[in-house]
């Protein structure tokens, strides 16, 4: 008999509900039945580790495309991937995507009449190091309008996708920038019930890691689900 450790359960305060009235597209895309709670098994406590994926270091720098610099404010976004116990999550895949400095995504469905930047794709990948650290170089994304309601604008944000060590540690989120005047009006940001959880999605400006004559630095730590204390028995 081997023993495996479950992961902690998620709190409803820390995550958005499936249906949030003010974010209109949730109306037809949320289940009405209650999710069925299942015990964690070997399926849930394992997950893709991407150990054979080979990344180029250039995938962590969105500010240069084919040797040419993108328009906009060059920034670093760096920090650590941690679990709830504060332990680093090393060697985990982080994917990011974002719009350009003018608020336009390089995507056929983005019809916002702001200029595309030939030197900006807005896609990056990186693996956290042994200490759980990561660092992207990019440009500060612009705010952009969307069709949710009259005069709706998204606060500037970067989309992040993380895997962590298990199927249940999967996290897709958005990282915001300090003091954005649009926070109060954004249903996606405000879909998170807990104020402290909303604040945790906002990065912090950091002068110490800002590079003179080169780039501003924003710090952001991710906290993924951690282990529960009690192990369970798995198999004979």
């Amino acid at each position: 008999m081997t023993e495996l450790e479950s992961y902690s359960r998620e709190s409803k305060k820390d995550h958005p509900p499936a249906f949030y009235k003010d974010y209109k597209s949730t109306t037809l895309r949320h289940p009405k039945n209650r999710a069925i709670k299942i015990d964690h098994t070997v399926t849930e406590v394992t997950g893709p580790l991407f150990s054979s994926v080979k990344l180029e270091s250039s995938e962590g720098d969105l500010s240069i495309e084919n040797g040419k610099e993108a328009q906009g404010q060059r920034i670093f976004v760096s920090g650590r991937v941690l679990d709830e116990g504060g332990r680093p999550v090393p060697n985990t895949l982080i994917e990011i995507w974002q719009c350009n400095a003018a608020g336009r995504y390089l995507h056929p469905n983005d019809q916002h009449p702001a200029p595309l930047d030939p030197n900006f794709v807005g896609r990056g990948r990186m693996i956290s190091n042994e200490k759980g650290e990561y660092k992207f170089t990019t440009i500060k994304p612009g705010a952009y309008p969307w069709g949710n309601h009259f005069n709706a604008w998204r606060p500037a944000h970067i989309h992040f996708s993380l895997f962590g060590p298990a199927f249940v540690t999967r996290l897709v989120t958005q990282m915001y920038f300090p003091d954005d005047p649009l926070f109060a009006f954004d249903p996606i940001f405000n879909s998170i019930p807990s104020e402290s959880a909303r604040k945790r999605m906002i990065s912090e400006f950091d002068l110490d890691t800002t590079e003179p004559d080169f780039a501003l630095s924003f710090k952001f730590d991710f906290v993924l689900r951690g282990r529960q204390a009690t192990p369970f028995e798995n198999g004979a």
Binding site: D14, P16, Y23, E84, Y105, S161, L171, M201, L224, R225
Partner: peptide, 21 residues
């Protein structure tokens, strides 16, 4: 064990294919 608050989930949005395809 003191617990750190987890990072909240947010939608992938309409342009997920930029990174995910």
């Amino acid at each position: 064990m003191s617990k750190m608050g987890v990072t909240a989930s947010q939608t992938v949005g309409p342009f997920l294919s930029i990174a995910m395809r």
